[in-house]
Write a protein that binds this DNA or RNA. Structure first.
Lengths: 287, 287
DNA sequence: AGTAATTACGAGGTACGTAACAATC
DNA sequence: GATTGTTACGTACCTCGTAATTACT
């Protein structure tokens, strides 16, 4: 008895006719007919009532079908479990306080292994640290190294915040700005920026923020809106636009170094990803 | 994925080593090794931690094994169900008021189909009739025909009761006997005689009966005991013994005709068995 | 040395598709 | 006449066993 035969039984039961079942199974009717007959021979019982050009499940066929469905359902669970394991093995779960360093990490990993999946989650620093320690993420990105006996950290990305000023705006011809000068202005901001959101709230207490949670929609709005926005020097950040001018913000709070951290007992794939970031960081320092 | 591969997985898990498993599976180690590797390839995951000359299930292997066992258990249930169905199809359940007619029927059926199984049950006439009507038996044997629209009956066997007298017994030289003459004597009787038990009780109210429920033991006891016993002219009755003399009993109650009855809606195999008895009965009448 | 797992290679078996057939709607 | 299920036949593929290889105990 073979799983394929049970699948054929179930398919014939579903389709009602052998030709339709053969079609769905990518099989010739003759092959399907013989295969089902082999199953009947092995069980010692007819499973179908046949006329010369039709067939229908009989009592015993329905009993066999019941068992077959149970077996196939269990097989499906087995396959699903292993599909999930395979996906999990290719997935690097990243808890990051900001999106740009996750994008950077994703770029580094994908360049070396295009089948990998980087799954970022923008969270608070405490949450990032917590997830790394309790194993619900593989790598954490925070604004400070996580210095513990069971962790290692490396600098991943230096990000500088710019005010993104539209044409005709009063601040358009400035070469630099401070949060103090920007406070009170209205801003269009992308929602999933984590750490930077805290900075905005703290440094621009009198400003109003129009928040767009969808990155794609946000980028479209940047083109048409005449509100101030923010952008950064992160290479994956595409919010720059020719109609806008990016003016550096000079406050210390407008600059952040994001650190990548992993557990020293991480599996090889995670260690490899961390090593990529580490090597890149060293290359940056040398250059 | 094939059921055989899951069976191999389970066997390797049970045996611990591949060579032992291959032995049990009647397979060469090389074939088993390749087959399991194919399974691993299909699932995209190693199921075993291997060194060059050893292997052991790993975490994922144990998960797969769990599913495999569930699948194989369900397959076992499927096979068991169909084995039971196959056995049932070859089985003729007979509810008979006496053993000899069941033996006769069994002989008739087996002569024509050696794979058949006749499953006799000695019951009361009411029970035999009831079972035939409610479908818990296929054929009924009673001392009278069951004359209903949905039944047919045929004579199966005429049985005559004999007193089986040991050497040296006072009645040894008689040519015939009556129940009246036998009443008060002690008898060794076989337990599973159904109808005849009623006759004994009724016709020999003052006799004592030593009852042996096991047929084999009874036949051995007949040889050594000097108690009176009964025997009949049924051809399958082997309780005759050279040291004993079978003396016919002349009362009408010592003669019985057993009738075989079936339902007219019985399946073909049952109809065939009934027809055998019917043909035999007609042959007896002609001869 | 002995055992256990794995690869190379040739051979046998098995299930496939094509084609022809039979019978029903 | 179109559709459905079943056999006949030749072929391609696939898995097996034997034998050789490697490494561990």
């Amino acid at each position: 008895m073979e799983l394929e035969q049970l699948r054929q039984l179930a398919t014939v039961a579903d389709e009602g006719t052998m030709q339709a079942a053969a079609m769905r199974l990518h099989l010739s009717p003759s092959a399907l007919s013989r295969s089902l007959r082999r199953l009947e021979d092995e069980l010692g019982q007819q499973l179908f009532d046949r006329t010369k050009n039709s067939m229908r499940l009989n009592e015993r066929g329905r009993l066999a079908l019941e068992h077959a469905r149970a077996i196939l359902a269990e097989e499906r669970r087995l396959r699903d479990d292993f599909a999930a394991i395979a996906k999990r093995a290719r997935t690097i779960r990243v808890a990051s306080v900001a999106p740009a360093p996750a994008w950077r990490l994703s770029a580094l990993v994908l360049a070396q292994n295009p089948t990998a999946i980087v799954e970022p989650d923008i969270v608070s620093p405490e949450e990032a640290r917590g997830r790394l320690l309790n194993g619900t993420c593989d790598l954490a990105v925070t604004t400070d190294p996580i210095a513990l006996p069971i962790t290692r950290s490396t600098a991943l990305l230096h990000e500088d915040l710019y005010a993104n000023v539209p044409e005709g705006h009063a601040l358009r011809d400035r070469d630099s700005l401070t949060f103090g000068e920007l406070d009170g202005q209205s801003f269009l901001v992308y929602g999933g920026i984590g750490y930077w959101h805290e900075i905005h709230e703290r440094m621009l207490p009198h400003s109003h923020f129009v928040t767009q949670p969808d990155r794609i929609v946000f980028l479209q709005q940047v083109r048409t809106s005449d509100l101030l926005t923010f952008t950064t020097n992160a290479p994956e950040n595409t919010s720059a636009h020719e109609s806008r001018k990016a003016i550096p913000i000079t406050d210390a709070e407008a600059h952040a170094t994001f650190w990548l951290s992993m557990r020293t007992d991480a599996p090889a794939t995670i260690q490899a990803a961390f090593a990529l970031a580490e090597a890149e960081s060293e290359r940056q320092q040398d250059g």
